[in-house]
Amino acid sequence: MKKLMVSGALALAFSGVAMAEESGAFVGVDLGLSNGKMTRETMGSEQIQDVNFGFRYGLMGGYKWFFTESFGLRAYLQVNNGSLKLKDMPATPNTYNTLNVMANVDALWNFYTSNENAVGLFAGLSLGYAIHNGGIVKQYVDSGIKDPSGFDMGINFGVRSILAKHHGIEIFSRFGVVGASATSATSVPGVPGVPGTIDVKMTTMQPYAFGVRYTFNF
């Protein structure tokens, strides 16, 4: 009986340490900044327009799995929204809005754990769909160029902490590697040496986004 009690006490003590962060569902909100780049390619010539940093805000929700005290994975959906303004372009319109819908998978590593708190890093892959509208995008669409909304991809990286088991604070970043693009056949009649139509490819990219995030872990 004594051995059984000792074994039970050790098991409880071990589980108490391992309970620093558990598998489970979570939801969150974030606030940050992102920049952008808009590229217009015509007949092999590129016109690149950089975009100033703009505020973004969003919601997220998903599930995390911890396989050891320190290592885990999480999968989550994320929606964020914000406006961007083109640099060095005083003419109106010079802004556009972007709504991002993203599916993410991150690897989690906690380098500090206690009974109720943890601190660690995360890194992962973000696959999304960027929906651009308003401002300069509307002007392009009205001129016959396709809306450059579409698939994009990025890399997530950041620092995260868990407080009192349920509350999470993160500093996040996302590096864009693939931007949304669309190619349009634009009519240019009557121009010597130019065919009746030319292809115009518009690409929109968010090279870098960063900010802070709060999560509630159930």
Results as ranks from 00 to 15, higher is better:
residue 50 D to H: 13
residue 135 G to S: 08
residue 194 V to K: 04
residue 16 G to E: 09
residue 153 M to K: 07
residue 12 L to A: 04
residue 34 S to I: 03
residue 25 A to H: 10
residue 186 T to L: 15
residue 77 L to W: 04
residue 130 A to R: 12
residue 158 G to A: 04
residue 152 D to S: 05
residue 47 Q to L: 13
residue 25 A to Q: 07
residue 174 R to T: 09
residue 31 L to S: 02
residue 174 R to M: 10
residue 96 Y to L: 01
residue 164 A to T: 01
residue 117 N to I: 02
residue 15 S to W: 14
residue 163 L to N: 03
residue 196 G to I: 05
residue 146 K to C: 00
residue 1 M to E: 11
residue 127 L to D: 06
residue 187 S to L: 12
residue 22 E to N: 08
residue 26 F to I: 01
residue 69 E to W: 05
residue 191 V to D: 05
residue 45 S to E: 12
residue 136 I to N: 08
residue 43 M to H: 11
residue 34 S to H: 10
residue 123 A to D: 07
residue 174 R to G: 02
residue 24 G to C: 09
residue 192 P to C: 07
residue 4 L to W: 09
residue 158 G to L: 01
residue 130 A to I: 11
residue 179 G to Q: 02
residue 152 D to I: 09
residue 172 F to H: 08
residue 207 P to G: 03
residue 95 T to P: 00
residue 126 S to E: 07
residue 9 A to N: 09
residue 196 G to L: 03
residue 191 V to P: 02
residue 123 A to P: 02
residue 18 A to F: 12
residue 136 I to M: 10
residue 214 Y to L: 04
residue 94 N to I: 06
residue 30 D to R: 14
residue 47 Q to Y: 14
residue 195 P to V: 00
residue 1 M to H: 08
residue 70 S to Q: 15
residue 213 R to D: 06
residue 142 D to G: 04
residue 87 K to V: 10
residue 196 G to D: 12
residue 81 N to K: 15
residue 90 P to F: 13
residue 74 R to I: 00
residue 204 T to Q: 13
residue 197 T to S: 06
residue 207 P to R: 07
